Amino acid sequence: MTAPLIIIGTGLAGYNLAREYRKLAPEAPLQLISADGGDFYSKPMLSTALASQKSAAQLVMKPVEKMAEELRAEIWTETPVLRLDPAQRRVHTARGELAYSQLVLALGADAFAPPLAGDAAGQVLQVNDLADYARFRAALAGREQVLLLGAGLIGCEFAQDLASNGIQVTVVDPAGWPLSRLLPEAAGRYLQGRLEALGVRFCFGQSAQAVEQAAGRYAVQLADGSALQADLVLSAIGLRPRTQLAAEAGLAVARGIVVDRQLRSSDAQIYALGDCAEVAGLVLPYVQPIMQSARVLAANLAGQAPLLSYPAMPVLVKTPACPTIVCPPLTAGGEWECQALEGGLRALYRDGAGRLLGFALLGSATTERAALSAQLPAWLG
């Protein structure tokens, strides 16, 4: 019996790869391994689900049984992978060993755990999957004040979602403005103003040092010695690609699992895609690169040999109080040009020759997305 293609991971990357592969190889043996329940849901919805009044169960788009039926695949759920054996082409799991013909790592990324002291540091919540979201919703019941660590993309989306539902939100970040890694200051300040109008409070230039219990609430100690009170503390300070399994198996790892433009790792029979993968030096934890990678990898697994390319792919920040679209420049050496518009702001990043390398569009400026995207060079040509 031919060993199956095995995909480790049933998130957006794993399931979309399986779907694309089934189009090209309808009868090939296929198995997926999931560390969780394996139900299919949209992870980007986790930071906006309060506004849609959806519970964790309601975010499930298809149960794992339906996914197994549609993919004609065997899916092992609640099955941690213990180690890989590339020499023998075997996966060792908590449920037993499996042989593979080809292996795909769609492991995703872990949320950064902030290094906090204090007797309540272990009660700081993070939302990185459906189970996390269920715990967050349960903990949020009856709470009025949330302290949010991180003013990046996910942090701003959570701040919008919470404030829109009547929760008092304070956001703490060591940077000087929201989305500081994606937006120039003028654009970040514009976004800040719109979120503040919604009721969000920002505390920039500060980092949390400790979290203590305080009369049924939490006291968060900041670097300057001050403290903030909250009913709940949520951390959204970023993601770290899951590389440990690959590194322990001897695969090349840098910021992510190093793969070539066919998504092949340093082992010829092992591939990686999604948040855990590093392609040509790029780690892009966004939906469009994942979908692009899934199509290319499926073709490679089916015996074709396409190379992955990335056009410039704008990122939508889900903050309805200030619609924001960012196409970050992937190279330095340019400068931002910001222009206030009626109801919005346009920020263009140009190099010394005047070539457009990136943009940020806020409010009314988001209508320029298509025209500006057409002027950008490919991220990976």
Rank of each mutant, 00 (worst) to 15 (best):
G176T: 09
D39I: 06
A280W: 02
L273E: 06
L103D: 01
D275E: 12
D36C: 11
L46A: 13
L179F: 01
P329V: 00
D267G: 07
L24A: 08
R242S: 00
V279M: 03
K318Y: 06
M291S: 04
D119A: 13
P29T: 15
D129S: 09
A294T: 09
I237S: 08
L239W: 11
E27S: 15
T324W: 10
Q292R: 12
T2A: 12
A35E: 14
F40W: 05
L191M: 11
L239F: 14
A208S: 04
P86Y: 03
T93V: 00
P377T: 14
R137S: 11
T93H: 02
A312E: 13
N128R: 15
P323V: 10
Q123R: 13
V279P: 01
L182F: 12
P44Q: 05
E212K: 09
F112I: 13
L107C: 11
Q209N: 00
N16A: 03
A141N: 05
A68W: 03
E248G: 02
G14E: 02
T243H: 04
V253W: 14
D231L: 08
P44S: 05
Q209E: 12
W76T: 08
P377F: 13
L308D: 03
A68H: 09
A120V: 02
S34W: 08
L125Q: 03
V233K: 07
P86S: 03
A163H: 07
L345R: 01
G38A: 14
T331D: 08
G155A: 08
P377G: 13
T10N: 04
H92M: 14
A254G: 15
L46R: 13
E69S: 11
S364C: 09
L125P: 00
M45S: 11
L297E: 10
C156N: 09
M291W: 06
N128P: 02
G9K: 09
A56M: 14
D224M: 08
L191A: 00
A73D: 05
T366A: 07
L147G: 04
P306L: 02
R181M: 06
